[in-house]
Simulated scan of single mutants.
Amino acid sequence: MKQIWLFTVRAYIRLGLFFYFKKIDIRNANHIPKDEAVIFLGNHQNALLDALLIATKNGRFSYFLTRAGVFEKPLVSRILKSLQMLPVYRIRDGWGNLNKNNSIFSKSSKLLSEQNAIVIFPEGSHNLNRTVRPLSKGFTRIIFETLERYPNTKIQLIPVGLNYKKAEKFSDSALINFGTPIQVDKELLGDKNKSIIKLKEQVSQQLQQLTIHIESEKYDSTLKKLEDLNVDFTKPEEVNQCIASNFEDCKTSTPKKSHPLKRLFKVLLIINLFIPYFIWKKIAQPKIKEIEFTSTFRFAIVISLVPIFILIVMLILGLVFQIKFAFMYLINVIVLALLSVKL
């Protein structure tokens, strides 16, 4: 039953992502082993959408180390745990809770010894800035504990670069860029301090190549120059080369005008989904305190309230008129959604 549940949820999320993103590109998925212990290590810009993209596009049913704050409500906690999410406590959650991480790390080690896959965001928090922030050493703790308890285990570390054209906008485009596996085994245990530094450097260097990395001290001015040049932020190699060349070797383009009918299709879609849209614009969006959560909450409405509203309208049309009108409405919404998002 667990596998059926996970297959069903993943298929539903993939469908939602298809209607949410204009385009999702995947690179180097062939780097991912199918039956070995894997730790995916991604940069973290776009809150929950980062996790959903990795979960639906890596070909593995992965476990996710997730901040404990989202597990506070019992029902939500049960759902998240059924989706293989494991709560991790941070200092901001209280010093007394940090000891709870011991059991989570031990469980993670056991999962890796059984050749499972785990997803970790080693930056420790999310931020829309296009830069790779310093990595915490939490993921190295899991690696060392695994190798100490299960010395025959070999772990593949796969950095994942997540790239968005404009993460908070709808509809956006994304690139999931899988890196070259870094294999670790018991030989790593010789000098832990050196091994920690080396692993963090290796992962950070790959992430800086797999996604766009703008140095912090010149962040604002660099970003403005890139935006003025209209670079494609889903092409990190080109953008990083542009930065490295001091903007002399840049692939630029003129801003693309949206399709003339796109706005019309979007207005018609809003009319057909007026209640979910009203809830988003007037209730949900004003309550968002961190811009990084904008896409997360918008996507949550797309995969929850929108389908419920569509089913209610179809039920009313089927009962009041005929069933064919209900399906005409469904087809109309699907076509408008595709035209609004994909054009």
Rank of each mutant, 00 (worst) to 15 (best):
residue 148 E to N: 14
residue 204 S to C: 04
residue 158 I to P: 03
residue 194 K to V: 06
residue 136 S to C: 02
residue 203 V to G: 05
residue 222 T to R: 09
residue 225 K to H: 07
residue 204 S to W: 06
residue 136 S to T: 07
residue 176 I to H: 13
residue 228 D to E: 13
residue 146 T to F: 10
residue 212 I to G: 08
residue 225 K to L: 12
residue 196 I to M: 07
residue 220 D to K: 15
residue 228 D to S: 11
residue 200 K to M: 15
residue 221 S to N: 11
residue 165 K to C: 03
residue 187 E to K: 12
residue 217 E to I: 11
residue 145 E to H: 12
residue 194 K to T: 09
residue 169 K to S: 06
residue 214 I to R: 00
residue 194 K to C: 00
residue 151 P to L: 11
residue 165 K to N: 11
residue 207 L to T: 04
residue 202 Q to Y: 00
residue 154 K to A: 13
residue 150 Y to L: 14
residue 141 R to P: 02
residue 163 N to D: 05
residue 227 E to Q: 15
residue 189 L to Q: 01
residue 172 D to P: 03
residue 162 L to W: 02
residue 140 T to F: 05
residue 148 E to A: 12
residue 192 K to T: 04
residue 173 S to K: 13
residue 149 R to N: 15
residue 140 T to V: 11
residue 229 L to N: 09
residue 218 K to D: 14
residue 194 K to D: 05
residue 168 E to M: 01
residue 146 T to M: 10
residue 185 D to M: 03
residue 231 V to Y: 00
residue 199 L to K: 01
residue 211 T to M: 12
residue 226 L to I: 13
residue 137 K to C: 05
residue 135 L to K: 06
residue 205 Q to W: 02
residue 147 L to C: 11
residue 155 I to E: 03
residue 192 K to C: 01
residue 201 E to F: 00
residue 175 L to V: 06
residue 212 I to S: 11
residue 174 A to H: 01
residue 159 P to G: 13
residue 169 K to T: 10
residue 171 S to D: 00
residue 223 L to R: 06
residue 136 S to H: 11
residue 168 E to A: 06
residue 175 L to Q: 07
residue 165 K to L: 09
residue 148 E to T: 14
residue 214 I to E: 02
residue 186 K to C: 01
residue 216 S to H: 04
residue 209 Q to G: 00
residue 226 L to F: 04
residue 139 F to D: 05
residue 179 G to P: 05
residue 137 K to A: 14
residue 189 L to I: 03
residue 208 Q to H: 10
residue 164 Y to W: 02
residue 207 L to N: 10
residue 186 K to S: 13
residue 187 E to C: 03
residue 212 I to L: 08
residue 169 K to H: 02
residue 230 N to Q: 10
residue 203 V to C: 08
residue 166 K to M: 01
residue 156 Q to E: 04
residue 140 T to A: 11
residue 135 L to V: 10
residue 206 Q to G: 09
residue 195 S to K: 03
residue 218 K to E: 10
residue 222 T to E: 10
residue 215 E to H: 06
residue 223 L to D: 04
residue 228 D to C: 01
residue 138 G to A: 09
residue 181 P to E: 10
residue 221 S to W: 04
residue 193 N to I: 14
residue 170 F to I: 15
residue 135 L to F: 08
residue 183 Q to D: 13
